[in-house]
């Protein structure tokens, strides 16, 4: 099982999109907050699957969902 998570800085925005190895995703504009969320797996975030987008992206920002 992968233990790799990623943080993408979405082009054209200040938004960071995090994707946990479990498939859960979230976004934030602060790396520390997002790393806290990613590092808290499995207790700190919804692990229900790739659709578990916890924080909606700001209007006009293209995500990967």
């Amino acid at each position: 099982m992968s233990t790799t998570f990623t943080v993408d800085w979405l082009p054209g925005s200040d938004v960071l999109r995090g994707r946990c190895h479990c498939g859960a995703t979230s976004s934030a504009q602060d790396p520390a907050t997002l790393l806290d969320w990613l590092g808290a797996h499995p207790d700190g975030h919804d692990t229900s699957g790739p659709e578990a987008l916890l924080a909606p992206l700001p209007a006009g920002v293209a995500g990967d969902a």
Binding site: T3, T4, F5, T6, V7, D8, W9, L10, P11, L38
Partner: peptide, 11 residues
């Protein structure tokens, strides 16, 4: 230029 960060906790 924006960056992408990847963390492999196991490796």
């Amino acid at each position: 230029t924006p960056i992408t960060t990847e963390v492999d906790e196991e490796a």
